[in-house]
Write a protein that binds this DNA or RNA. Structure first.
Lengths: 188, 188
DNA sequence: GCAAATACCTAGTGGCTCTAGGAAGCGCGG
DNA sequence: CCGCGCTTCCTAGAGCCACTAGGTATTTGC
């Protein structure tokens, strides 16, 4: 019989697409195998187990997120950079919910440390904050506030958690403005 | 044989405790049944299915969260209320991670509308914001920013996602101060 | 003290992850 | 062009899970 031509990368990429469709928590090797017209056991030649597959999606997603944000903030600084960063972040979370969830899932810190994508995301954040002239530990605190706010917004919006009629995109832009104000007037 | 004396409420409460131990995503009816010294099939007399059980935990948790926050902000206003609200929120998420995750899980909006706990949480938020003198739609935007920031922080901290040496509790307090600044100087 | 309600049971289905070991395609040296 | 070996993909099966059907035993209410 003709082979499906699977590789670790193709499997991971398909898994990421599947995650965007059904949710990161709901991917199964069985469903993934079905998509390739293959039995689930066959995937174990390419992927160690489900956990490793999830890890692969997370690395892939962290990289793609860093790409998007990097492109968005290029050539901008201060408020402009903050707005571009925030919008690129939210758009990624909305367009690729499975990948986004993967990128934010609990991951072995040792692996995070070796990941290019995660490193670039941290770098993008600190680069964007540079214009605000903060110093440690305020810099870390500010980065954590931004990350929390963006991630929280993405999670709640993704869950359909904003019940009010006001459109989330408008609230988001205003929230980013408010965060800009907070950064400019950082308490100290 | 002696009966275990199960009721829908006892089952839900035990499930909430189990969720706090193993994580909301990892609860199983089988494990829950084991805890009662009962077969998994027996639980279906008290709970319709796993999804309903999760819903029950979510309602319970939303109620408990509202209790805590309500008690924390009682008699406070403005910055004091914001700080008390934020700390109570974070403490709940850290002490009862399974319940907290349940309270933030995707839930049928129609059910949320009928839930006392969820309603009280919204109420607590708007009451706490009252002192800042915002009007719609700024009020909604501010509420969403706070909710996003608190939730995001709780999720990331719960995942062990703050790699830096700086203690999360310190970053959190500073972030809350920054949010206070943003609320006082709300852009408009 | 009896009948109805119900708490808990056994048995079984189907989906999932993952392992062990076998067969079939492909790429390489001759 | 041919066989050798590597890898891909397979079948078979164990164990855990959610959930259903239908039976037995214990309470509760009369």
């Amino acid at each position: 019989m003709a082979r499906a031509g699977l590789t670790a990368e193709r499997v991971t990429r398909a898994a990421a697409d599947l995650a965007d469709e059904v949710g990161f928590e709901n991917i199964t090797l069985t469903a993934l195998a079905r998509g390739f017209g293959v039995k689930d056991a066959s995937l174990y030649s390419h992927v160690k187990n489900l956990q490793e597959l999830r890890l692969g999606i997370a690395m892939l997603a962290a990289d793609e997120l860093a790409d998007r944000i990097g492109a968005a903030v290029a050539g901008r600084a201060g408020r402009d950079a903050l707005i571009a960063f925030a919008r690129a972040y939210r758009e990624f979370a909305l367009e690729r919910p499975g990948r986004y969830a993967a990128s934010q899932a609990r991951i072995d810190p040792a692996l995070v440390a070796t990941s290019e994508g995660y490193r670039r995301n941290v770098e993008n954040t600190y680069a964007m904050l540079r214009a605000y002239g903060l110093e440690e530990p305020d810099l870390t605190d500010a980065a954590r506030l931004l990350r929390s706010a963006f991630h929280g917004f993405a999670v709640i919006e993704g869950n359909g958690g904003f019940g009010h009629v006001r459109r989330p995109s408008e609230s988001f832009d205003r929230a980013v403005e408010a965060l800009h104000v907070a950064l400019v007037n950082w308490p100290g």
